[in-house]
Amino acid sequence: MMQATRDAYGKTLLELGKQNPNIVVLDADLSASTKTASFAKAFPERFFDMGVAEQDMIGTAAGLAASGKIAFASTFAVFGSGRAWDQIRMVVAYTRLNVKVVVTHGGITTGEDGASHQANEDIAIMRALPNMTVVVPADAVETGKVIRAAAEFNGPMYVRLSRAMTPVIYKEESCDFKIGRGIVLREGKNVAIIACGIMVGVALEAADKLAAEKITCRVVDLHTIKPIDKELIIKCAEETGAVVTAEEHSIIGGLGGAVAEVLVENAVVPMARVGVRDTFGESGKPEDLLVKYGLTSGEIVTAVKNVLARKK
């Protein structure tokens, strides 16, 4: 089954709106794309379309949160992280206000809109902010759980979702999402593949391919980039002796960077990062871009073999 994580966001937000009158939603002229439109239709008095003004949107969300509201503010990942970064830093992270910046169109699978709209740096710049929690769910089922957890959690949070249809890997009842706790999806002895977002599904695919070659992979969904699950990362390194990270984001400063920071200070093992190299994307079909920019199970297989060779 395929479903876009942004669709799960829209659906969950609508349910939460019915349950909690304290939830307000803001968007910056992209409600049809971010899927906040269904909330807008059901609760027009609690929805604020701020127009093309992301900085103002974040400031307004902070004012609403300072008055006791749970504010969800949505736009595309590039604008939500980059255009409004100083606003998020100043009146959301610094103030610890209850604002959830939930962005869609994260990463290269934004596709045809091209480099201007493909956020490949957002995880890095968001996780650099003190007080900020950064979550990248792996599929639509997990997204539903993340959004519910976000509504319960008191404080700033950045949630990064995708535009594209992606495989659903979790079953509703078996997805045990907790902020800051990575999920081991598959056990394996030779290497740990630690992934987030849509690359979790790709990592499972790579693990299948490697199993045919008698290489067993532990696959981890490290949905929370911050606070990072240090314990689990160290355990993965100690028990398998090699780590590969996979993310739909620049290899600079994102999941790979965060995992490398933990490893280098705690458990040095051969490591490789799969992600977008230090480059901007371009227009194209999401599936073609994933191939061109090295975000495939084949790339993960190659990276695994590379770290295994260094292990010896």
Binding site: G59, A62, G63, L64, A66, V91, T95
Partner: peptide
């Protein structure tokens, strides 16, 4: 800094941001 001192309603210092927050409070 609103976290540091009771009575401060919004942290500021990076200019241009207070009116948006004030709008949020007015909407609330």
């Amino acid at each position: 800094d609103m976290q540091a001192l009771p009575g401060i309603e919004m942290s500021t210092g990076s200019l241009g941001q207070g009116l948006s927050a004030a709008n949020g409070m007015a909407l609330a």
